[in-house]
């Protein structure tokens, strides 16, 4: 009897991707056959960049840095434009229809600082850290975590001096310093991370040129045109009178 033919779909990752309701997934990638690392797991969520392109391009101020440098998010202010999703170097924000208001809204990890549900302000750890049973995730003072991360990196590299590439700390300097740090045992690409994430140039122009100067340009042009009318009127009257 012939077997039922099925299309080869699906993924071992569940849920398969981030969504407005899923702010964090654990992504894995399989190493090569002769690769002793085997499976590489990584936490896939917002990196809370210091130079955050999403904050730069957000037109409504829905995305902002809170006092700890975390890229926090006030959903009430989101207009659903989706610029953040298009500018994020890590492809994190997800847009979708919010059933409560039947309108497009972005969503992403806020490191549990969402207004009204701010675990950090209450002195608690983010939920992901709290639930991680193996303490692979640690929350704390960034400087201390960097020191701790460097220690782990050096111990990994001294234990495996011949492994290529060497382990490294990711997030210390990237994009002005991320507020999520990773000890990577392999290259960033292995974990689907950009080796050198870049702040998009178009985001710089948005934030530093267009938004602040557009109004100045319009005001200057309007003032110049008004002045032109005043001068032209005065000169025409003057030339008529002198005739």
């Amino acid at each position: 009897m012939q077997a039922v033919v099925t299309s080869n779909r699906g993924t071992y990752e569940n849920p398969p991707d981030l969504s407005p309701d899923t702010w964090l997934t654990i992504r894995f990638s399989e190493g090569d056959e002769d690769d002793s690392t085997g499976w590489s797991f990584i936490r896939n969520s917002c990196m809370h960049c210091t130079d955050a392109a999403c904050v730069a391009v957000c037109p409504s101020g829905a995305l902002f840095h809170n006092e700890y440098g975390i890229v926090s998010y006030d959903k009430e202010k989101c207009i659903g434009c989706g610029y953040c999703a298009e500018f994020c170097p890590f492809n994190i924000p997800r847009l979708g229809v919010d059933p409560a208001i039947n309108a497009d809204r972005m969503n992403k990890c806020t490191m549990c600082t969402s207004p009204g549900l701010d675990r950090i302000a209450m002195g608690l750890e983010p939920a992901c850290v709290k639930t991680c049973p193996t303490q692979a995730l640690i929350f704390g003072d960034r400087d201390k975590l960097i020191a701790q991360g460097r220690e782990v990196v050096s111990s990994l590299n001294s234990a495996h001096p011949n492994s290529q590439p060497q382990a490294r700390l990711y997030g210390e300097t990237e994009l002005g310093g991320l507020h999520v740090l990773y000890v990577l045992a392999d290259s960033p690409e292995t974990y689907n991370l950009p080796p050198e994430p870049e702040f998009p140039a178009a985001a710089t122009i948005q934030r530093d040129v267009f938004r602040p100067f557009a109004w100045i340009v319009w005001a200057a042009v309007a003032a110049g045109l008004a002045l032109n009318v005043i001068v032209a009127r005065a000169r025409q009257i003057h030339s008529r009178e002198s005739k």
């Binding site: 009430e76 989101c78 207009i79 659903g80 434009c81 497009d104």
Partner: peptide
């Protein structure tokens, strides 16, 4: 112009504007 007005929290009407 909504995009150029940072204080325009037009949130709920955002998609209508779009």
């Amino acid at each position: 112009l909504v995009i150029f007005v940072p204080w325009s929290s037009l949130s709920i009407v955002g998609q209508w504007v779009r």
